[in-house]
């Protein structure tokens, strides 16, 4: 038998064992700092990158992103987006090591989920075309890896 989750109730404190309240440390922070992302990131794939550069700008606890596409399979200019959610590595807090951001390119919307791993910025892109009904293209997923620019 499954536990009753009470999904809409605020008195529910956890729905995973790892989220139990008694595990909270004293250093838990509500707004992880995104400073680890600051700078320019270059795609590790020099042959066929979809996104060539990512530029991260940090102001306080706000992270802004600018993406540069290859200009062929992906548009060159993606404009600027602000990270909608910054996440630490655990409920105990610490610096932000991941984020979610959304881009609206008109003909498609892209949800990006990123995380830092071994010095790399790993970004998963979920592309949703806005021309539902034409049926000629599928929404698609891509995942790219970026290293810090030497000048960053």
């Amino acid at each position: 038998m499954l536990q009753s989750s009470g999904l809409r109730s605020f008195d529910v404190k956890h729905l995973r064992a790892q989220d139990r309240l008694e595990r909270i440390g004293a250093d838990a922070r509500l707004s992880p700092s995104p400073s680890e992302f600051s700078g320019t990131w270059v795609n590790t794939n020099t042959d066929a990158p979809g996104i060539t550069y990512v530029t991260c700008t940090v102001e306080g606890n706000v992270l802004r992103l600018r993406l540069e596409g290859n200009g062929s399979s992906e548009p060159s200019g993606w404009g600027e987006a602000t990270a909608e959610l910054l996440c630490a590595a655990s409920i105990h807090g610490g610096p932000a090591m991941s984020f979610i951001a959304g881009f609206d390119l008109g003909f498609k919307k892209v949800q990006a989920g990123a995380n830092l791993n071994q010095g790399l910025l790993v970004i998963a892109f979920y592309h949703s075309f806005q021309n539902n009904g034409e049926g000629s293209r599928s929404n698609y997923f891509s995942r790219e890896f970026f290293h810090r620019a030497a000048w960053s």
Partner: peptide, 16 residues
């Protein structure tokens, strides 16, 4: 991959 945002006052950090 999960991105969790806590919306209560428990003090838990958003986490990946």
């Amino acid at each position: 991959v999960s991105f969790t945002r806590f919306q209560d006052s428990s003090g838990r950090s958003n986490y990946f």
